[in-house]
Amino acid sequence: MVSKDEIKHLAWLARLDLSEEELLKYESQIDRIIQHFDILDGLTLDILEPTYFTKSVRNLRLDQAKDFGENVLPKTRNRKDGYLKGPKSDVKQ
């Protein structure tokens, strides 16, 4: 059973603000979704190697900078002194 507090914690891990109403709704929905995944929990497939990708990455290209020209993201709103402005990083939690 996935509780409301667990959903609150998961939402915090994913950095998602949820309203009280959303928490209530997700509590019942998410538990039902996970129950449908329980069909996998009972499976024994020990002999099989998992397939994470059907095509693996083989020849990574060189990590070269590419010039997209000036003002790449003209719609960016929050700027200061030629930089993008973000929130302060001193964590108070």
Partner: peptide, 27 residues
């Protein structure tokens, strides 16, 4: 805004289904 609270606030603007999948995926 403090870093984490800003991100949580803006990301609260994802729609219903996207939020549901992010939460289940995180679980």
């Amino acid at each position: 805004y403090e870093w984490n609270s800003y991100f949580a606030k803006v990301r609260g603007n994802f729609g219903d289904e996207v939020k549901r999948r992010i939460i289940v995926g995180t679980y």
